[in-house]
Design a protein around this nucleic acid. Structure first.
Lengths: 226, 226
DNA sequence: GTCGGCTCTAAGGTCCATCTCAGATTCGGT
DNA sequence: ACCGAATCTGAGATGGACCTTAGAGCCGAC
Protein backbone atom coordinates (compact mmCIF):
# COMPACT_ATOMS: atom_id res chain seq x y z
CA UNK A 1 0.00 0.00 0.00
CA UNK A 2 1.26 3.46 -0.76
CA UNK A 3 0.09 5.50 2.19
CA UNK A 4 2.12 5.51 5.36
CA UNK A 5 0.77 3.38 8.16
CA UNK A 6 0.41 5.17 11.46
CA UNK A 7 1.50 3.47 14.62
CA UNK A 8 0.96 4.70 18.16
CA UNK A 9 3.44 3.56 20.80
CA UNK A 10 2.21 3.72 24.39
CA UNK A 11 4.70 2.87 27.10
CA UNK A 12 5.88 4.67 30.21
CA UNK A 13 9.44 3.52 29.62
CA UNK A 14 11.14 6.16 27.46
CA UNK A 15 13.86 3.74 26.41
CA UNK A 16 11.37 1.39 24.82
CA UNK A 17 9.51 4.22 23.19
CA UNK A 18 12.67 5.56 21.64
CA UNK A 19 13.88 2.25 20.31
CA UNK A 20 10.52 1.40 18.86
CA UNK A 21 9.98 4.84 17.40
CA UNK A 22 13.35 4.99 15.71
CA UNK A 23 13.04 1.52 14.30
CA UNK A 24 9.54 1.96 12.98
CA UNK A 25 10.25 5.39 11.58
CA UNK A 26 13.20 3.90 9.79
CA UNK A 27 10.88 1.34 8.27
CA UNK A 28 8.79 4.10 6.88
CA UNK A 29 5.95 4.15 9.37
CA UNK A 30 4.51 7.30 10.80
CA UNK A 31 5.01 7.00 14.55
CA UNK A 32 3.28 8.75 17.42
CA UNK A 33 4.32 8.31 21.04
CA UNK A 34 2.51 8.45 24.32
CA UNK A 35 3.94 7.99 27.81
CA UNK A 36 0.78 7.06 29.65
CA UNK A 37 -2.61 5.51 29.15
CA UNK A 38 -4.30 8.88 29.26
CA UNK A 39 -1.99 10.36 26.68
CA UNK A 40 -2.41 7.23 24.59
CA UNK A 41 -6.16 7.61 24.39
CA UNK A 42 -5.79 11.24 23.51
CA UNK A 43 -3.24 10.62 20.78
CA UNK A 44 -5.34 7.81 19.38
CA UNK A 45 -8.30 10.14 19.02
CA UNK A 46 -6.10 12.75 17.46
CA UNK A 47 -4.12 10.69 14.97
CA UNK A 48 -6.35 7.71 14.18
CA UNK A 49 -3.47 5.25 14.00
CA UNK A 50 -3.82 1.92 12.24
CA UNK A 51 -2.10 0.08 15.03
CA UNK A 52 -1.25 0.61 18.70
CA UNK A 53 1.71 -0.91 20.49
CA UNK A 54 0.58 -0.90 24.09
CA UNK A 55 2.33 -1.71 27.33
CA UNK A 56 0.12 -3.49 29.85
CA UNK A 57 1.74 -2.30 33.01
CA UNK A 58 1.56 1.44 33.38
CA UNK A 59 0.72 3.71 36.28
CA UNK A 60 -2.71 5.30 36.01
CA UNK A 61 -4.82 3.91 33.21
CA UNK A 62 -3.14 0.63 32.31
CA UNK A 63 -3.02 -1.17 28.99
CA UNK A 64 -6.07 -3.31 29.64
CA UNK A 65 -8.17 -0.28 30.39
CA UNK A 66 -6.87 1.54 27.31
CA UNK A 67 -7.82 -1.46 25.20
CA UNK A 68 -11.26 -1.58 26.70
CA UNK A 69 -11.90 2.07 26.02
CA UNK A 70 -10.56 1.97 22.49
CA UNK A 71 -12.79 -0.97 21.71
CA UNK A 72 -15.85 0.50 23.35
CA UNK A 73 -15.56 3.62 21.25
CA UNK A 74 -15.96 1.40 18.23
CA UNK A 75 -12.41 1.68 16.94
CA UNK A 76 -11.11 -1.13 14.82
CA UNK A 77 -7.48 -0.31 15.46
CA UNK A 78 -5.09 -3.23 15.67
CA UNK A 79 -3.72 -3.57 19.18
CA UNK A 80 -0.44 -5.24 19.99
CA UNK A 81 0.08 -5.65 23.71
CA UNK A 82 3.43 -5.77 25.47
CA UNK A 83 3.50 -7.91 28.59
CA UNK A 84 6.18 -8.67 31.17
CA UNK A 85 7.61 -12.13 31.06
CA UNK A 86 5.45 -14.84 32.61
CA UNK A 87 2.58 -12.62 33.42
CA UNK A 88 0.30 -15.17 31.87
CA UNK A 89 -2.85 -13.77 33.28
CA UNK A 90 -2.07 -10.43 31.69
CA UNK A 91 -1.88 -12.03 28.30
CA UNK A 92 -5.13 -13.82 28.75
CA UNK A 93 -6.81 -10.74 30.11
CA UNK A 94 -5.33 -8.74 27.28
CA UNK A 95 -6.73 -10.95 24.58
CA UNK A 96 -10.06 -11.06 26.36
CA UNK A 97 -10.40 -7.32 26.57
CA UNK A 98 -9.76 -7.01 22.88
CA UNK A 99 -6.04 -6.97 22.09
CA UNK A 100 -5.21 -8.68 18.81
CA UNK A 101 -1.86 -10.09 19.77
CA UNK A 102 0.76 -9.84 22.48
CA UNK A 103 4.52 -9.83 22.74
CA UNK A 104 6.55 -10.73 25.81
CA UNK A 105 9.24 -8.37 27.04
CA UNK A 106 12.08 -8.36 26.41
CA UNK A 107 11.71 -8.70 22.66
CA UNK A 108 13.95 -8.10 19.67
CA UNK A 109 12.97 -5.40 17.28
CA UNK A 110 12.67 -7.93 14.50
CA UNK A 111 10.10 -9.87 16.50
CA UNK A 112 8.12 -6.76 17.04
CA UNK A 113 8.27 -5.92 13.38
CA UNK A 114 7.10 -9.38 12.39
CA UNK A 115 4.07 -9.17 14.70
CA UNK A 116 3.22 -5.75 13.43
CA UNK A 117 3.36 -6.87 9.84
CA UNK A 118 1.19 -9.87 10.53
CA UNK A 119 -1.36 -7.78 12.39
CA UNK A 120 -1.55 -5.13 9.74
CA UNK A 121 -2.05 -7.75 7.09
CA UNK A 122 -4.92 -9.26 9.03
CA UNK A 123 -6.54 -6.01 9.98
CA UNK A 124 -6.50 -4.10 6.76
CA UNK A 125 -8.06 -7.09 5.04
CA UNK A 126 -11.68 -6.24 4.51
CA UNK A 127 -14.36 -8.11 6.33
CA UNK A 128 -17.72 -6.99 7.55
CA UNK A 129 -16.90 -3.49 6.52
CA UNK A 130 -19.31 -1.01 5.14
CA UNK A 131 -17.32 1.70 3.42
CA UNK A 132 -19.01 4.98 2.87
CA UNK A 133 -18.21 8.05 0.82
CA UNK A 134 -20.68 10.84 0.16
CA UNK A 135 -23.93 9.10 -0.75
CA UNK A 136 -22.14 5.97 -1.90
CA UNK A 137 -21.85 2.81 0.17
CA UNK A 138 -19.73 -0.22 -0.49
CA UNK A 139 -20.66 -3.44 1.26
CA UNK A 140 -17.44 -5.39 1.36
CA UNK A 141 -19.00 -8.68 2.35
CA UNK A 142 -21.76 -8.62 -0.20
CA UNK A 143 -19.46 -7.08 -2.81
CA UNK A 144 -22.11 -4.66 -3.85
CA UNK A 145 -22.58 -0.94 -3.74
CA UNK A 146 -25.53 1.24 -2.91
CA UNK A 147 -26.36 4.71 -4.06
CA UNK A 148 -29.57 6.68 -4.14
CA UNK A 149 -31.56 3.80 -2.67
CA UNK A 150 -30.72 1.31 -5.38
CA UNK A 151 -28.36 -1.61 -5.07
CA UNK A 152 -25.56 -1.86 -7.60
CA UNK A 153 -24.13 -5.22 -8.55
CA UNK A 154 -20.42 -5.23 -9.23
CA UNK A 155 -18.16 -7.67 -11.00
CA UNK A 156 -14.97 -8.69 -9.24
CA UNK A 157 -12.78 -6.25 -11.08
CA UNK A 158 -15.22 -3.40 -10.66
CA UNK A 159 -15.40 -4.18 -6.96
CA UNK A 160 -11.65 -4.24 -6.50
CA UNK A 161 -11.28 -0.97 -8.29
CA UNK A 162 -14.00 0.74 -6.32
CA UNK A 163 -12.61 -0.69 -3.09
CA UNK A 164 -9.28 0.92 -3.80
CA UNK A 165 -10.95 4.26 -4.37
CA UNK A 166 -13.10 3.97 -1.25
CA UNK A 167 -10.04 3.23 0.86
CA UNK A 168 -8.33 6.35 -0.38
CA UNK A 169 -11.00 8.98 -0.83
CA UNK A 170 -9.95 12.41 -2.08
CA UNK A 171 -6.58 11.05 -2.98
CA UNK A 172 -5.32 11.07 -6.52
CA UNK A 173 -4.37 7.54 -7.47
CA UNK A 174 -1.95 7.30 -10.33
CA UNK A 175 -2.53 4.84 -13.12
CA UNK A 176 0.53 2.90 -12.03
CA UNK A 177 -0.69 2.51 -8.49
CA UNK A 178 -4.10 1.42 -9.62
CA UNK A 179 -2.75 -1.06 -12.11
CA UNK A 180 -0.48 -2.51 -9.48
CA UNK A 181 -3.25 -2.88 -6.95
CA UNK A 182 -6.12 -4.06 -9.07
CA UNK A 183 -4.43 -5.89 -11.93
CA UNK A 184 -1.14 -6.77 -10.30
CA UNK A 185 0.95 -6.99 -13.37
CA UNK A 186 3.50 -4.85 -15.11
CA UNK A 187 1.92 -4.00 -18.38
CA UNK A 188 4.69 -3.27 -20.81
CA UNK A 189 2.53 -2.86 -23.79
CA UNK A 190 -0.12 -0.37 -23.02
CA UNK A 191 -3.66 -1.28 -22.36
CA UNK A 192 -6.73 0.77 -21.67
CA UNK A 193 -8.37 -1.69 -19.30
CA UNK A 194 -8.29 0.85 -16.54
CA UNK A 195 -10.14 3.43 -18.57
CA UNK A 196 -12.70 0.88 -19.62
CA UNK A 197 -13.35 -0.17 -16.05
CA UNK A 198 -13.55 3.38 -14.84
CA UNK A 199 -16.23 3.83 -17.43
CA UNK A 200 -18.09 0.71 -16.28
CA UNK A 201 -18.02 1.97 -12.72
CA UNK A 202 -19.11 5.44 -13.68
CA UNK A 203 -22.02 4.24 -15.71
CA UNK A 204 -23.18 2.07 -12.83
CA UNK A 205 -22.62 4.64 -10.12
CA UNK A 206 -24.09 7.56 -12.01
CA UNK A 207 -27.05 5.64 -13.32
CA UNK A 208 -29.57 8.32 -12.51
CA UNK A 209 -27.59 11.27 -13.73
CA UNK A 210 -26.12 11.64 -10.27
CA UNK A 211 -23.01 13.77 -9.76
CA UNK A 212 -19.71 12.25 -10.72
CA UNK A 213 -17.62 10.67 -7.98
CA UNK A 214 -14.66 9.28 -9.88
CA UNK A 215 -12.91 12.19 -11.49
CA UNK A 216 -10.17 12.16 -14.07
CA UNK A 217 -6.97 14.00 -13.28
CA UNK A 218 -5.28 14.45 -16.62
CA UNK A 219 -1.69 13.38 -16.71
CA UNK A 220 -1.97 11.80 -13.29
CA UNK A 221 -4.78 9.39 -12.62
CA UNK A 222 -8.17 9.41 -10.93
CA UNK A 223 -9.69 10.65 -7.66
CA UNK A 224 -12.75 9.75 -5.68
CA UNK A 225 -14.31 13.03 -4.59
CA UNK A 226 -17.54 15.00 -4.75
CA UNK B 1 5.75 12.92 -7.57
CA UNK B 2 6.55 12.72 -11.20
CA UNK B 3 9.82 14.49 -11.43
CA UNK B 4 12.96 12.48 -10.80
CA UNK B 5 14.42 12.51 -7.32
CA UNK B 6 17.63 14.52 -7.09
CA UNK B 7 20.52 13.49 -4.91
CA UNK B 8 23.60 15.54 -4.15
CA UNK B 9 26.77 13.66 -3.27
CA UNK B 10 29.38 15.64 -1.34
CA UNK B 11 32.68 13.93 -0.68
CA UNK B 12 36.27 14.91 -1.33
CA UNK B 13 37.14 11.35 -2.31
CA UNK B 14 36.56 11.04 -6.06
CA UNK B 15 36.38 7.26 -5.86
CA UNK B 16 33.40 7.37 -3.54
CA UNK B 17 31.69 10.02 -5.62
CA UNK B 18 32.04 7.94 -8.74
CA UNK B 19 30.75 4.73 -7.22
CA UNK B 20 27.81 6.45 -5.63
CA UNK B 21 26.98 8.49 -8.69
CA UNK B 22 27.03 5.50 -11.03
CA UNK B 23 24.95 3.36 -8.74
CA UNK B 24 22.34 5.97 -8.02
CA UNK B 25 22.10 7.06 -11.63
CA UNK B 26 21.49 3.43 -12.53
CA UNK B 27 18.67 3.38 -10.00
CA UNK B 28 17.04 6.24 -11.79
CA UNK B 29 18.08 9.13 -9.58
CA UNK B 30 19.35 12.41 -10.87
CA UNK B 31 22.78 12.83 -9.30
CA UNK B 32 24.85 15.94 -8.72
CA UNK B 33 28.39 15.83 -7.30
CA UNK B 34 30.44 18.17 -5.20
CA UNK B 35 34.02 17.74 -4.03
CA UNK B 36 33.96 20.09 -1.05
CA UNK B 37 31.67 21.63 1.47
CA UNK B 38 31.70 24.96 -0.34
CA UNK B 39 30.82 23.37 -3.64
CA UNK B 40 28.16 21.30 -1.91
CA UNK B 41 26.37 24.35 -0.56
CA UNK B 42 26.56 25.99 -3.94
CA UNK B 43 25.21 22.95 -5.79
CA UNK B 44 22.47 22.60 -3.23
CA UNK B 45 21.36 26.15 -3.88
CA UNK B 46 21.59 25.61 -7.60
CA UNK B 47 19.84 22.26 -7.97
CA UNK B 48 17.55 21.97 -4.93
CA UNK B 49 18.16 18.25 -4.34
CA UNK B 50 15.76 16.11 -2.32
CA UNK B 51 18.56 14.37 -0.44
CA UNK B 52 22.23 14.99 0.31
CA UNK B 53 24.81 12.28 0.89
CA UNK B 54 27.41 14.10 2.89
CA UNK B 55 30.85 13.13 4.08
CA UNK B 56 31.67 14.45 7.55
CA UNK B 57 35.39 14.73 7.18
CA UNK B 58 36.39 17.17 4.49
CA UNK B 59 38.98 19.93 4.29
CA UNK B 60 37.47 23.40 4.53
CA UNK B 61 33.80 23.43 5.42
CA UNK B 62 33.11 19.99 6.86
CA UNK B 63 29.91 17.98 6.81
CA UNK B 64 28.68 19.21 10.15
CA UNK B 65 28.97 22.81 9.07
CA UNK B 66 27.26 22.08 5.76
CA UNK B 67 24.40 20.46 7.63
CA UNK B 68 24.10 23.41 9.94
CA UNK B 69 23.96 25.89 7.10
CA UNK B 70 21.49 23.88 5.07
CA UNK B 71 19.21 23.64 8.07
CA UNK B 72 19.53 27.26 9.04
CA UNK B 73 18.39 28.37 5.61
CA UNK B 74 15.17 26.55 6.33
CA UNK B 75 15.68 23.66 3.94
CA UNK B 76 13.98 20.40 4.66
CA UNK B 77 16.35 18.34 2.60
CA UNK B 78 17.03 14.83 3.80
CA UNK B 79 20.64 14.51 4.93
CA UNK B 80 22.52 11.21 5.06
CA UNK B 81 25.89 11.58 6.70
CA UNK B 82 28.91 9.42 6.00
CA UNK B 83 31.22 8.94 8.97
CA UNK B 84 34.52 7.16 9.45
CA UNK B 85 34.43 3.97 11.44
CA UNK B 86 34.21 4.38 15.18
CA UNK B 87 34.00 8.14 15.12
CA UNK B 88 31.11 7.92 17.49
CA UNK B 89 31.15 11.56 18.41
CA UNK B 90 30.81 12.48 14.74
CA UNK B 91 27.64 10.46 14.49
CA UNK B 92 26.15 12.00 17.55
CA UNK B 93 27.19 15.46 16.48
CA UNK B 94 25.80 14.74 13.05
CA UNK B 95 22.39 13.78 14.29
CA UNK B 96 22.40 16.70 16.65
CA UNK B 97 23.19 19.26 14.00
CA UNK B 98 20.37 18.01 11.89
CA UNK B 99 21.40 15.00 9.84
CA UNK B 100 18.59 12.47 9.42
CA UNK B 101 20.68 9.34 9.39
CA UNK B 102 24.28 8.26 9.11
CA UNK B 103 26.23 5.46 7.51
CA UNK B 104 29.63 4.23 8.61
CA UNK B 105 32.42 3.89 6.06
CA UNK B 106 33.15 1.55 4.50
CA UNK B 107 29.67 0.62 3.34
CA UNK B 108 28.22 -1.51 0.59
CA UNK B 109 26.22 0.19 -2.06
CA UNK B 110 23.17 -1.86 -1.09
CA UNK B 111 23.37 -0.49 2.43
CA UNK B 112 23.52 3.02 1.11
CA UNK B 113 20.57 2.41 -1.16
CA UNK B 114 18.51 0.99 1.69
CA UNK B 115 19.15 4.06 3.86
CA UNK B 116 18.34 6.38 1.01
CA UNK B 117 15.08 4.62 0.31
CA UNK B 118 14.06 4.73 3.95
CA UNK B 119 14.94 8.40 4.23
CA UNK B 120 13.11 9.38 1.10
CA UNK B 121 10.06 7.48 2.22
CA UNK B 122 10.10 9.37 5.48
CA UNK B 123 10.98 12.77 4.14
CA UNK B 124 9.45 13.32 0.76
CA UNK B 125 6.25 11.38 1.19
CA UNK B 126 4.36 13.76 3.41
CA UNK B 127 1.25 11.83 2.57
CA UNK B 128 -1.82 13.19 4.20
CA UNK B 129 -0.04 16.36 5.12
CA UNK B 130 -0.86 19.75 3.76
CA UNK B 131 1.75 22.18 2.62
CA UNK B 132 0.92 25.57 3.92
CA UNK B 133 2.17 29.04 3.16
CA UNK B 134 0.41 32.18 4.36
CA UNK B 135 -3.27 31.58 3.66
CA UNK B 136 -2.54 29.12 0.89
CA UNK B 137 -2.80 25.37 1.29
CA UNK B 138 -1.63 22.69 -1.08
CA UNK B 139 -3.11 19.25 -0.64
CA UNK B 140 -0.52 16.99 -2.16
CA UNK B 141 -2.72 13.91 -2.12
CA UNK B 142 -5.70 15.52 -3.74
CA UNK B 143 -3.53 17.64 -5.99
CA UNK B 144 -5.56 20.70 -5.27
CA UNK B 145 -5.02 24.02 -3.53
CA UNK B 146 -7.17 25.98 -1.14
CA UNK B 147 -7.25 29.67 -0.46
CA UNK B 148 -9.83 31.89 1.11
CA UNK B 149 -12.20 29.00 1.66
CA UNK B 150 -12.43 28.01 -1.97
CA UNK B 151 -10.89 24.93 -3.55
CA UNK B 152 -8.68 25.46 -6.54
CA UNK B 153 -8.31 22.78 -9.18
CA UNK B 154 -4.89 22.52 -10.73
CA UNK B 155 -3.62 20.92 -13.88
CA UNK B 156 -0.58 18.68 -13.60
CA UNK B 157 1.89 21.34 -14.67
CA UNK B 158 0.33 23.98 -12.47
CA UNK B 159 0.48 21.58 -9.55
CA UNK B 160 4.12 20.70 -10.11
CA UNK B 161 5.07 24.34 -10.35
CA UNK B 162 3.20 25.33 -7.22
CA UNK B 163 4.61 22.34 -5.38
CA UNK B 164 8.11 23.53 -6.16
CA UNK B 165 7.32 26.98 -4.78
CA UNK B 166 5.68 25.59 -1.67
CA UNK B 167 8.68 23.39 -0.97
CA UNK B 168 10.98 26.39 -1.13
CA UNK B 169 9.10 29.33 0.28
CA UNK B 170 10.75 32.74 0.41
CA UNK B 171 13.50 31.49 -1.80
CA UNK B 172 14.15 33.01 -5.18
CA UNK B 173 13.98 30.28 -7.77
CA UNK B 174 15.78 31.06 -10.97
CA UNK B 175 14.17 30.32 -14.30
CA UNK B 176 16.77 27.64 -14.95
CA UNK B 177 16.05 25.80 -11.73
CA UNK B 178 12.33 25.94 -12.32
CA UNK B 179 12.61 24.80 -15.90
CA UNK B 180 14.81 21.93 -14.85
CA UNK B 181 12.44 20.80 -12.12
CA UNK B 182 9.08 21.23 -13.73
CA UNK B 183 9.79 20.81 -17.42
CA UNK B 184 12.93 18.71 -17.25
CA UNK B 185 14.39 19.64 -20.55
CA UNK B 186 17.24 21.79 -21.73
CA UNK B 187 15.55 24.56 -23.55
CA UNK B 188 17.96 25.91 -26.10
CA UNK B 189 15.42 27.86 -28.01
CA UNK B 190 13.58 30.43 -25.97
CA UNK B 191 10.18 29.72 -24.65
CA UNK B 192 7.90 31.58 -22.32
CA UNK B 193 6.05 28.56 -20.97
CA UNK B 194 7.17 29.41 -17.49
CA UNK B 195 5.72 32.89 -17.65
CA UNK B 196 2.51 31.54 -19.04
CA UNK B 197 2.15 29.04 -16.25
CA UNK B 198 3.03 31.56 -13.58
CA UNK B 199 0.20 33.58 -14.98
CA UNK B 200 -2.19 30.63 -14.88
CA UNK B 201 -1.28 30.04 -11.25
CA UNK B 202 -1.61 33.67 -10.32
CA UNK B 203 -5.00 34.01 -11.87
CA UNK B 204 -6.21 30.94 -10.02
CA UNK B 205 -4.62 31.83 -6.70
CA UNK B 206 -5.59 35.49 -6.70
CA UNK B 207 -9.10 34.88 -7.91
CA UNK B 208 -10.71 37.21 -5.43
CA UNK B 209 -8.25 40.05 -5.70
CA UNK B 210 -6.21 38.53 -2.92
CA UNK B 211 -2.63 39.67 -2.37
CA UNK B 212 0.00 38.28 -4.70
CA UNK B 213 2.03 35.30 -3.53
CA UNK B 214 4.21 34.53 -6.51
CA UNK B 215 6.35 37.56 -7.11
CA UNK B 216 8.55 38.34 -10.07
CA UNK B 217 12.21 39.05 -9.39
CA UNK B 218 13.38 40.80 -12.47
CA UNK B 219 16.43 39.30 -14.10
CA UNK B 220 16.41 36.38 -11.67
CA UNK B 221 13.22 34.40 -11.37
CA UNK B 222 10.28 34.13 -9.01
CA UNK B 223 9.66 33.90 -5.25
CA UNK B 224 6.82 32.66 -3.15
CA UNK B 225 6.31 35.22 -0.39
CA UNK B 226 3.71 37.51 1.11
C1' DG C 1 -22.34 -28.26 -26.27
C1' DT C 2 -24.52 -24.03 -25.53
C1' DC C 3 -25.38 -20.06 -23.07
C1' DG C 4 -24.33 -16.01 -20.38
C1' DG C 5 -21.41 -13.14 -17.94
C1' DC C 6 -16.89 -11.26 -17.29
C1' DT C 7 -12.56 -9.48 -19.03
C1' DC C 8 -9.87 -7.42 -22.17
C1' DT C 9 -8.52 -5.52 -26.96
C1' DA C 10 -8.97 -2.41 -30.55
C1' DA C 11 -10.24 1.52 -33.24
C1' DG C 12 -12.06 5.89 -33.75
C1' DG C 13 -13.63 10.10 -31.63
C1' DT C 14 -13.42 13.93 -28.32
C1' DC C 15 -11.55 17.23 -25.57
C1' DC C 16 -8.46 20.08 -23.13
C1' DA C 17 -3.72 20.80 -21.17
C1' DT C 18 0.10 22.51 -23.12
C1' DC C 19 2.74 25.39 -25.70
C1' DT C 20 3.64 29.08 -29.32
C1' DC C 21 3.34 33.52 -30.90
C1' DA C 22 2.57 38.41 -31.32
C1' DG C 23 1.57 42.50 -29.32
C1' DA C 24 1.16 45.11 -24.91
C1' DT C 25 3.16 46.60 -20.70
C1' DT C 26 6.28 47.31 -17.03
C1' DC C 27 10.75 47.95 -15.16
C1' DG C 28 15.56 49.42 -14.45
C1' DG C 29 19.24 52.05 -15.98
C1' DT C 30 20.86 56.24 -17.66
C1' DA D 1 11.85 61.09 -19.20
C1' DC D 2 13.42 57.77 -22.42
C1' DC D 3 14.84 53.27 -24.27
C1' DG D 4 15.67 48.50 -24.49
C1' DA D 5 14.91 44.37 -22.27
C1' DA D 6 12.22 41.58 -19.41
C1' DT D 7 7.88 40.12 -18.40
C1' DC D 8 2.88 39.90 -19.07
C1' DT D 9 -1.28 38.89 -21.55
C1' DG D 10 -4.64 37.04 -24.72
C1' DA D 11 -5.83 34.05 -28.29
C1' DG D 12 -5.21 30.12 -30.99
C1' DA D 13 -3.17 25.49 -32.81
C1' DT D 14 -2.11 20.79 -31.82
C1' DG D 15 -1.24 16.54 -30.08
C1' DG D 16 -1.87 13.23 -26.89
C1' DA D 17 -4.59 11.65 -22.97
C1' DC D 18 -8.73 10.00 -22.19
C1' DC D 19 -13.47 8.31 -23.58
C1' DT D 20 -16.59 5.37 -25.90
C1' DT D 21 -18.34 1.51 -28.20
C1' DA D 22 -18.32 -2.93 -30.14
C1' DG D 23 -17.03 -7.36 -30.13
C1' DA D 24 -13.72 -11.39 -29.50
C1' DG D 25 -12.01 -14.78 -26.22
C1' DC D 26 -12.57 -17.25 -22.13
C1' DC D 27 -14.53 -19.83 -18.45
C1' DG D 28 -18.04 -21.87 -15.65
C1' DA D 29 -22.94 -23.37 -15.19
C1' DC D 30 -26.30 -26.23 -16.73
Amino acid sequence: MSEPTRILVVDDDPKIRTVVRRGLAYEGYRVVEAASGEEGLEKAREHLPDLVVLDVMMPGIDGLEVTRRLRSSGDEIAILMLTARDEVKDRVAGLETGADDYLVKPFSFEELLARIHALLRRKTAPSGELLRFADLELDVDAREARRGGRTIELTTTEFNLLLLFMRHPRKVLTRDVIMEHVWAYDFEGESNVLEVYVRYLRSKLEGDGEPRLIHTVRGAGYVLKE
